[in-house]
Simulated scan of single mutants.
Amino acid sequence: MTPELSAFLAEHGFAGDINAASADGRFTPLMRAAKLGRLDIVEQLLALGAELNARNADGCNALWLACYNGDHALIERLLAAGVDIDNQNGNGASCLMYVASNSKPDLVKLLLDKGANPALKNFDDFSALDLAASRTCLQLLKTAR
C-alpha cells in the first residue's frame, strides 16, 4: 500500500481497510475515490483487490458514484475492471437511468456504447428513456432501442 493510498484511507476514516464501509454505510474506499474522481486511488484499490461490486446503503456501486463525478476515464476503468454496468440501486435505478434523468448526454452515450441495458425499469416502472431530462438524452435512448 502506497503512502498516498494510506493517507486517503485515513483521511476518509477507513482505517487501512480497502473494503471497509464508512460509518454511515455510504461509501467504501473505492466508492469514495470514484465520487471524488480519484482515478489514481481507484487504480491502486483495484490492484489490491478492492471489492468492485460492493453496494452502499442505497444499493449503489462505485460506477454510480463515478457517474456522479462524470470522469470518462474513471468510468471506463471501472467498466474494464468488470463493475456491474446494470446494477440497480434500492429504488431500482441503474446508472443509465441516473445520467439520463440528470441530463448528462455524454455519459448516456458512454454507458450505451459500453453495453448498458436501456430497457431496464425501476420500481416505478420507468426506463432511462422515460426519465430522460433533455432532448439529447432522449434521442440517444430512442436510438438505442
Rank of each mutant, 00 (worst) to 15 (best):
A21H: 14
S94F: 09
G90T: 12
G16M: 03
R77Q: 01
A47D: 15
E4C: 09
A132I: 01
I41N: 02
P118I: 03
P3Q: 15
S101A: 12
D125L: 03
Y98E: 12
F126V: 07
G49D: 03
S127V: 07
W64K: 12
D58Y: 13
Y98W: 08
D124Y: 14
E51G: 12
N117M: 08
S103Q: 03
A132E: 00
M97G: 04
Y98G: 08
W64T: 13
Q88G: 14
D17M: 06
N53T: 10
D40C: 05
A54C: 06
Q88S: 11
R38T: 06
D58G: 07
L30T: 02
N53P: 05
P118C: 07
G49A: 04
G37D: 02
L63N: 04
A15P: 04
D125H: 07
N102D: 07
F14S: 02
T143Q: 12
R55Y: 10
N102G: 11
A66I: 06
G59E: 07
G92H: 05
E76W: 05
D124H: 15
Q139V: 10
E51D: 13
A10N: 13
G90S: 14
A133Y: 00
A132G: 01
A54K: 09
A128M: 01
A144F: 07
L131N: 04
L129D: 04
K142M: 11
D17C: 13
T2R: 10
G37S: 04
R55C: 13
A132Y: 02
V99K: 02
A144C: 01
A54I: 05
S94K: 09
D106T: 11
G37T: 10
L110E: 00
M31W: 00
L45T: 10
W64C: 11
S103D: 15
G70K: 05
L120M: 08
R145P: 04
W64R: 12
H72L: 13
D71I: 07
S22L: 05
L63Y: 08
E11A: 15
C95S: 14
S22K: 09
R55K: 11
G70S: 07
M97E: 00
D124F: 14
G90W: 12
A93R: 14
Y68Q: 14
G49T: 03
I75D: 01
S134W: 07
M31I: 00
L129M: 10
A119Y: 06
T28S: 09
R26V: 05
L63I: 08
G37P: 00
G25Y: 06
L39T: 13
P3G: 10
L107I: 01
K35G: 14
R32W: 08
H72A: 15
E51A: 15
C95I: 09
R77S: 08
D24V: 13
A34P: 00
V42I: 12
L138I: 04
G37N: 08
D125R: 13
A21S: 15
L110W: 07
I75R: 02
S94G: 05
G25F: 11
A119Q: 14
A62R: 00
A20H: 03
D130H: 10
G16P: 07
S22P: 01
P118G: 09
L5H: 01
E76Y: 03
G59A: 08
A133G: 03
N19Y: 05
G90K: 12
N117I: 10
I85D: 01
F8W: 04
L74A: 08
P3S: 15
G25L: 00
T136Y: 02
T2L: 08
L39P: 05
S6P: 03
A33V: 05
L52K: 00
